[in-house]
Amino acid sequence: MDILSQETRQLFSAWQEGLAKKKGDRDEDMIERQEELMHTVEQGPSVLAGYLRDQLGLGTDVSIKAPPLPRKLTPSEYRDPCFQLERDICRDWQGLVQPGLASQPLYWTVLHVAWLEEGLIGDQIDVALLSGGRDSTVEERTRNLLRRLGGLAHVRGKISVLVNCPLGRAWWRGYVGQLAAEHSSDALTSEAAHRVLHASNPAWEKLAGDSVRRVTVNNRPEIRAALIYHFRDASRESGGVDADHFQRTAQVLARHGSLISFDLVPWTTLIEMAANAAQTATTELEREARQREQEKARRRPQKGQ
């Protein structure tokens, strides 16, 4: 995307860091900038879009070709798209979004400029962008907005764009699901794989976190395919998936990564490995839970003391 120039990147970093600092940093004018942003949001999507263009140095005549959204989204649809909406988005964006750009908070923020201008984030952008989670202070609402527009990388790291930006998250889940399906020996469709990844936002966050923070074998599409296949019955409608168990199963699978290359392992062997990993994960998590309980009991004051 040509408009992601070095200058735009610098302006974006400066804009975000001027609105949200890491704990301990001080900025006397930050509150004023946050309040200006809140006031801008209150004035509606076209005003917010203009503000963003100004902050990012995108002139009013700079055209932004954003992939289409299927319709004007309600605030709740925007903040947490249902599975079908995520599928519709991924279908419509096929070939239009590439991971090299989709990993960048600036990219999604620029796309939001176009969607705001087209009215696709709806009229209640204060509810869509500011509300939910922690939202009782100007600081918290500002952070919500920055996360949802594209991610707050300088505070949350590379994971933010994958888990905090709802539309970015939708695309990434669909993309990872598609890759898994392609490496599942036809055992999974991309829809089925995506459904598992959509089943739990916390589970997705743990998987994404492990994937971006380390040079991990977890990013092999075969290992993801086996993992997702093991949890293939999971969906939000059926109660989701236990995030800790999902993460630990992936981690146990990855322990084999120093010894084997997953792309050469037969599919039947992979799913057997995933089943064993899930069992090991259960055992480890139960043991750790017992240890925590024992530790808690040990620290509890004894009667008579």
């Binding site: 590379k158 971006v212 792309d263």
Partner: peptide, 24 residues
Amino acid sequence: PKTLYSSVTYSDSAICKIQWSPDQ
């Protein structure tokens, strides 16, 4: 890691040439 990307290139030769795309 940032794009959750991983690929493997095989070679019969001890000199293995690999490429990657800026899209990935």
